Simulated assay, not measured.
Amino acid sequence: MRQRVTGAIAVVPAGMAVLGALAGCSSSTPKTRQTLSLDGPWASEFQKGFADAKSEWERDVLRDGVVTATEYEQSRAHVRSCLGDAGLTIAWNGSGGFSLGSKSGSYPDDFFDRADPILQQCESQWAGWIPVLFEQVRRNPEKKDEATIQVACLEAAGLVDKTYSKQRWSRDNEKGDFPFDAMSGSARRCSLDPLSLWLTE
């Protein structure tokens, strides 16, 4: 169950693991850098995530080279609980972001400056690489070339024609400037689910 957020003020892209330190949500950092032996298209990312993990819980999730939907939701639940201990709420949306709010409904001018370090620590302890690996593997399990699948999706959606190349998409993506409305429903679907593997709406 997601908490209702009143007066949410911060909307940030999901899957961005922000690392920090703040008393209140402790982390367990290994003394030595641990590694995994995995195979598969996302093996190197899982190995890096495991080595970078700030908690044993995150390492346990990443150890087998898979982030399940249950583990993904458990990660969110832990982040929500950690924030709740500090009087904060969080709600994720289906378009790749979340809203951060106050349980008390009070939003002083320095609310985000005070809340951001808490969010960073909670994500460091309970999220780390888990969200980004779950989301990226779900949208592109075989790790196909991103430019290729984006152009194919955009063309199928009627947002670009056959002259729009992978090189052009890469340049446009780097600049964040596309020849179509990147916030339109079709464009966002291509960004989130270019292979049409999981979005049903």
Rank of each mutant, 00 (worst) to 15 (best):
S44A: 13
S95I: 15
S75F: 00
L197H: 02
D177G: 05
S28R: 14
A43M: 04
S191A: 14
D85E: 15
E142T: 10
R138L: 15
N140L: 02
V18Q: 13
E73W: 05
D110M: 01
E155H: 12
V137W: 01
M16D: 15
T89V: 05
Q34H: 11
P30T: 03
I90K: 05
R168G: 03
I118D: 00
A127Q: 13
L192K: 03
G65R: 10
L62Y: 02
G158W: 01
S196P: 00
A43S: 12
G49L: 05
R114K: 15
A10F: 15
V12L: 11
G176K: 05
L133H: 05
A157L: 09
R4Q: 15
A53I: 10
S170Y: 02
L192R: 08
A152S: 09
L62I: 04
L38M: 00
G65P: 09
P179Q: 04
D64K: 11
A53F: 11
F178K: 07
Q125S: 14
T6M: 13
R168M: 12
F178Q: 08
S170M: 12
G96V: 04
F46H: 10
S99R: 11
E123K: 08
R171M: 02
N93Y: 07
A23I: 04
W92Y: 14
S124H: 14
S191D: 10
G176H: 05
W169V: 01
S81M: 08
S44Q: 12
W92G: 10
E58M: 14
G24S: 04
S184P: 13
F46D: 09
T29F: 12
N173E: 07
F180Q: 06
C122M: 03
W42F: 07
K48C: 08
L133K: 06
P13W: 03
Y107D: 04
L197W: 01
A14K: 08
T163A: 12
A152G: 04
P141C: 08
E135L: 15
D193T: 06
A187H: 06
I130R: 05
T163H: 12
V132N: 14
A53D: 09
